[in-house]
Design a binder for these strands. Structure first.
Lengths: 261, 261
DNA sequence: AAACTATGGTGATTATAATGAACCAAGAGC
DNA sequence: GCTCTTGGTTCATTATAATCACCATAGTTT
């Protein structure tokens, strides 16, 4: 369904910094013909995925998305479950914590609890987290079905900082380490001066469906902090799993007791 | 873009009472071929709009919707816009006011402004408001797409008080009255001793996406109060529409001037 | 004010992608 | 062990979406 994929990929072009587009701009950014783009937008407009400013004729995401998101949340209330866990995580670590779930080829931040410190890492809700460059992604891949991992490793990796792991072998190493530790760590791979540590969130079959992450400014990071955050993350991930009735793989449970003494 | 429309209309088949489908069931309900349906689902799965239970192979709405909804909320902050309107409504009426948006098969309260009086109706944020038993629901249905109304009237209506309207014909009457008046009224249909009056909130297509409601203890309710609240609600609803850039149906505007003199 | 430019939007031809009946494989129920 | 149903696949046929030149309009520049 090439057409559907193209249409949906139009939606991915919207971001917080680029919340509205004119037809021409959107078509160009998508690499599609103007007419094609227009027709797709019209189709999505009919379903409320896109709406158009009556005056400026600019296109933006539509209110229909809210409805579907609330519906999804009504049937699978993950965010409600995760939010309090996240808040406690942010309190205990003093750093910003976020939760991300798989959405297409990347993770998407769906809940954030900001650090109370004045100097902190800010995470925008809705942020796309590439699998290879973030701890969230690594933790997710470490417990994702092998097929997903292989597919991910087959894609080409964008470089975000000079410390981004762009070599598949390198990424695989990070993933393997994360599988053993239960947490993934990425040092300044996505944003400069930020270290991520993340634990996976599981679905009913014991596969990762997302990740819980603590983001720390490099200035506050140390070996001690890292161990402490790791232990807290594993507890938090187990907590989420218990509340959602999902099943982490057996070996993940054992990490809790021996946790980084 | 027939293909895109068909694909998106698949998403509209999900509801709170029908949150998951097998391939065959979904294809049948959509009136599409299995193969076609499958390909569309796969395309949407790639973008996180749909996810599939790994064990049961059932399809449900995906986490990618959460991301886009968050993004939309970041660009058009509906709740932020509604809150001050609600605040003023509560001040002017002296009663608790709340806003609710469609979430599954009921409305969900997303913002509340409590009355300052000591004797007041309390509304918990997140409260589920059934469509047939609350003014919010009636006002919503009065301006919802006909398909939504018919579907709602097809469901069984739970009784909450001895004044709850549980007969579809009775509910339809309330809805029709609400369509004419611009506001829905429910007298002790959900909680005893409480009268709700509500005006619809519109989306970009001129359909209701929720409602603005004032809840009044029966002891303070009178014909005068009712007219006054109705007029204030219509003004508030129009105010919200203007601030959000959404489009109430033309005839709704006219209610403002003649408002319950 | 006239000419210019960039924008959103349209229409008919052509190339492409969607379709659907028949077909498989696998699990559930008897 | 057989059957029935379900998810998923295949490939010739057919309907559909991409394309490109074009139009209308609003804002700018000269």
């Amino acid at each position: 369904m090439k057409t559907v994929r193209k249409a949906l990929s139009l939606l991915d072009l919207f971001s917080k910094s680029n919340p509205e587009f004119g037809l021409t701009a959107l078509a160009q950014k998508a690499g599609l013909d103007k007419a094609t783009t227009l027709r797709m937008l019209q189709a999505m407009k009919m379903h409320g995925f896109i709406e158009q400013d009556a005056k400026s004729r600019q296109y933006r995401l539509g209110a229909g998305l809210l409805r579907l998101a609330r519906l999804r949340e009504a049937t699978v209330p993950v965010v409600d479950i995760i939010q309090p866990v996240l808040r406690r995580l942010a309190e205990k670590t003093g750093e910003t914590a976020h939760a991300a779930l798989l959405a297409g080829e990347a993770l998407a931040a769906v809940a954030v609890a900001n650090s109370s410190r004045s100097s902190r890492v800010n995470v925008e809700p809705g942020l796309q987290l590439p699998l290879h460059a973030t701890a969230s992604g690594i933790a997710f891949l470490a417990f994702a079905p092998p097929k997903v991992l292989d597919e991910a490793l087959g894609r080409k990796f964008q470089r975000f900082t000079d410390m981004t792991a762009t070599d598949p072998a390198e990424v695989r190493k990070l993933v393997e380490a994360a599988h053993i530790n239960g947490v993934g760590t990425v040092d300044r791979g996505f944003e400069p001066d930020v270290v991520d540590i993340a634990a996976p969130l599981f679905d009913g079959l014991g596969h990762a469906q997302g990740a819980l992450t603590v983001v720390t400014p490099i200035s506050r990071m140390s070996l001690n902090v890292r161990h402490e955050h790791s232990a807290l993350l594993i507890q938090a991930a187990l907590d989420c799993a218990r509340r959602m009735g999902t099943n982490p793989p057996v070996h993940f449970w054992s990490l809790n007791s021996e946790a980084f003494g």
